[in-house]
């Protein structure tokens, strides 16, 4: 159960990932970049970032520690 304080950093990270999947800062912006409205590009890039950070999150094992579950007891659940 070590590192539990560092695990908490995932709460704000996931919250930011969820909230800004909607491009709020671009509200009302009508700029077109490379054939698509710029806020659509934001969304595309954002979902890519989500995938990468989700991967880091599951690999960190933070959620297992949060649930009090030790994967090593039940066999190799590492991704």
């Amino acid at each position: 159960m070590r590192r539990s304080r560092r695990d908490l950093v995932w709460i704000p990270i996931l919250a930011v990932l969820i909230v800004f999947a909607v491009p709020w800062p671009l509200w009302g912006v009508d700029l077109v970049v490379a054939g698509l409205p710029v806020w659509i590009w934001w969304h595309i890039v954002w979902l890519g970032i989500c995938s990468i950070l989700f991967w880091r999150f599951v690999a960190s094992g933070a959620w297992e520690r949060g649930m009090g579950f030790d994967p090593s007891v039940e066999g190799g659940d590492r991704p």
Binding site: C50, S51, F54, V58, P79
Partner: peptide
């Protein structure tokens, strides 16, 4: 875990 990480890209 793999499904969770791949999900946003698949949906997009």
């Amino acid at each position: 875990k793999r499904s969770f990480a791949l999900w946003p890209v698949l949906v997009l």
